[in-house]
């Protein structure tokens, strides 16, 4: 009761409890330290030479190509799927939404095995594709694209569906009163309205496809120049040449950070 309070001092909400501060700091350290280690251990002197090694370049090119193709495939199939989930009432919609998110939580290796069972040479669809069209998917570059799409598409669908739900559907009604069919409304009104969400979803999708490992190595194997993407190359290099693995990892790190920066600057701040 006799305590004197200094009323001129700024109001405080009390100290941050150590029980929260310490784990928070440890958590941050845990996330940042390995990345720092990567940078510290990088063979900076031989870096340019290692980067231009044909193996590294080939893997990088293949990764970028397959991730981009996978993103295109995801856009072509995922955006309509997201639209259906967001705009059309149909029986079993909740179930479909749950199914779409399964690859998100499924271990990618399991996804790879599942893909093999369906698209493998003796799989449900693979045998028919092989017999009818002579198309073989496993252990090919197309197989890499397929594996990456399988794992990355949920990211796109969820992002786009969220954007569609957040967008005011009455703009679509306004378009209809002006004579726009549902398809024209979709292309001329809905897509532009959700463009930021669509772009964010596509970048997330691309990043996930770029980093794909488990489903790719299971379904497409590890053939340099054909199915060996960067993550696979890193894993392989780790067993033979540590420095090479570090350099390849560094490249993936730079690309990832680049995506993060692009997302922050172009979409996240405006959203």
């Amino acid at each position: 009761m006799t305590q004197v309070r200094d009323h001129t001092a700024p109001r405080r909400r009390g100290r941050v409890p150590a029980a929260l501060l310490v784990p928070a700091g440890l958590g941050l350290l845990f996330l940042v330290l390995p990345l720092a280690g990567l940078v510290i251990r990088a063979p900076w002197t031989t870096l340019p030479q290692r980067l231009t090694e044909p193996g590294a370049l080939t893997a990088l090119r293949l990764s970028v190509q397959t991730a981009t193709l996978a993103t295109v495939l995801c856009l072509l199939l995922g955006v309509p799927l997201a639209w259906m989930l967001a705009r059309v009432e149909f029986p079993g919609r909740r179930l479909v939404r749950a199914l779409v998110t399964v690859p998100l939580v499924l271990p990618p290796v399991v996804g790879g095995v599942a893909l093999l069972l369906v698209f493998g040479r003796r799989g449900l669809l693979g045998g028919w594709l092989d017999a009818t069209f002579g198309i073989t998917l496993p252990f090919t570059t197309a197989g890499v694209v397929l594996a990456e799409s399988f794992v990355a598409m949920p990211f796109l669908v969820i992002a786009v569906e969220g954007a569609l739900r957040a967008a005011d559907h009455r703009y679509e009604e306004a378009a209809a009163t002006l004579g726009a069919s549902r398809w024209t409304t979709f292309t001329h009104v809905t897509l532009p309205l959700v463009a930021p969400g669509l772009a964010a979803g596509a970048v997330l999708c691309w990043a996930r496809a770029l980093g794909e490992f488990g489903a790719t190595i299971t379904f497409a194997g590890n053939y340099p120049g054909r199915t060996q993407t960067m993550p696979l190359a890193v894993y392989l290099a780790l067993e033979t040449d540590l420095e090479s693995a570090i350099v390849l990892s560094l490249v993936l790190l730079v690309v990832s950070v680049g995506i993060l920066v692009a997302l922050r600057d172009r979409w996240m701040t405006s959203a």
């Binding site: 703009y171 009604e173 306004a174 009163t177 002006l178």
Partner: peptide, 14 residues
């Protein structure tokens, strides 16, 4: 709607 000869001014314009 899209085939009706109508024009609509919405409350918040849209």
């Amino acid at each position: 709607t899209e085939r009706r000869s109508i024009g609509v001014v919405f409350q918040d314009y849209l």
